[in-house]
């Protein structure tokens, strides 16, 4: 029965995607839109070509790696800082009283709004990209670590005390592991925000990277390039999300409610 449903799903999916491409091709071959918009064939041609012919300074994989590098650096640093601050705020009333007001003041400012200030301050070099990715990730991770630490089941802490655990040990062996699923959820959102931030930063001031690529396409009225860029960016986004899900499944398998 399930097999039959899966086959049905597959057929519809194939049908849907096929009709999308056909529709696209029809519009760009037979209607006036063909003057402005490239058809699927041209896009795919450029996509394949970009693996060998450089756009700007790099082939497409080069741009990919540059963008990824920027994201990973900013994201990692921000995550570590965010976890520390979030758990501190969640477990210590003092830390909460000191840091929360400043955090709440700066939090609603979207990472993209920081671009101008950061570029003025740090220039158009790599560091401003790292910082922007970091800002994108930091708020989410901190917030999630904060709520995670606040919501640790007090019964578990009482239990640990009953078993003879020292307060310091309780922090590392009970509070921290309890927060992991929540922190991970925050990290997933943070990663996609970081990815968006790096694209924005690259569109505004860079010489390479995925964001630069589509901006270049826009500047040279090369819609094909823009579309190729969008496809690549979408694929990378999916990949990042998938990687995070796999890691989550390994780290947090204990959290999935079975009953």
């Amino acid at each position: 029965m399930k097999k039959k449903m899966d086959v049905e799903k597959m057929t519809y999916a194939v049908l849907a995607i096929a009709s999308f491409f056909v529709f696209w091709w029809l519009i760009t071959t037979f209607t006036p839109a063909k003057e402005t918009t490239p058809g699927p064939i041209e896009v795919i041609q450029l996509l394949i070509d970009s693996f060998v012919t450089p756009i700007g300074n790099y082939v497409i994989t080069g741009h990919l790696l540059v963008s990824l590098r920027r994201v990973l650096v900013g994201f990692s640093v921000a995550t570590i800082l965010g976890i520390i601050l979030g758990i501190a705020m969640g477990t210590s009333k003092w830390a909460e009283a000191i840091f929360k007001p400043i955090f709440e003041l700066l939090r609603p400012i979207p990472p993209i709004a920081w671009i101008s200030l950061v570029i003025l301050f740090f220039g158009i070099g790599e560091s401003s990209k790292y910082i922007l990715c970091g800002i994108g990730a930091f708020t989410n991770v901190t917030l999630n670590a904060y709520t995670g630490a606040q919501n640790v089941d007090p019964e578990l802490i009482g239990c640990a005390r009953m078993l003879g655990t020292s307060e310091r040990s309780i922090f590392f062996r009970v509070i921290l592991p309890s927060c992991t699923p929540q922190i991970f959820a925050g990290m997933q959102v943070a990663l996609s925000t970081s990815w968006m931030a790096v694209l924005a930063a690259e569109m505004v001031g860079a010489q390479e990277g995925c964001g630069w690529m589509i901006q270049r396409g826009s500047d040279t009225l090369n819609i094909t390039l823009v579309m190729v860029g969008m496809i690549v960016i979408g694929c990378v986004g999916m990949l990042l999300a998938a990687v995070m899900r796999v890691i989550e499944r390994r780290l947090c398998s204990w959290n999935i409610m079975d009953n």
């Binding site: 005390r161 009953m162 992991t180």
Partner: peptide, 20 residues
Amino acid sequence: EAPGSDRGVVYQTTALFPFC
């Protein structure tokens, strides 16, 4: 005056550490 390892407790809700 405080919980300790000389008194073991079995809770109604088991309170097992879900991450262990």
